[in-house]
Amino acid sequence: MRFPVLVEVRLRPGIADPQGATIQRALPALGFDGVQEVRVGKAIRFTVEAPDASAAGRQVDELCQRLLANPVIEDTTVSLGEPV
């Protein structure tokens, strides 16, 4: 089965996010005064071949740890879709 995967990579709390800070500073100029806590991350989409959802999840967790995120500065959230 082939599972669609969405991995969201976020900077951990306390890690500098100059992009997020810059976006937040720009928003009031457009009239958006109430926006706070802007954080910029990455969304990585792919599909993975696995016999079932838990095997797919294990594979994705491992590749997140080994490549997609640096655990010193980043967290990940994995969303596994219905197999296609």
């Binding site: 900077l11 890690i15 500098a16 996010d17 100059p18 992009q19 800070a21 810059t22 640096n70 010193v72 500065i73």
Partner: peptide, 10 residues
């Protein structure tokens, strides 16, 4: 050990 993050001054 550790990691290099973006400069604090952007």
């Amino acid at each position: 050990p550790g990691a290099l993050q973006k400069n604090s001054g952007s």
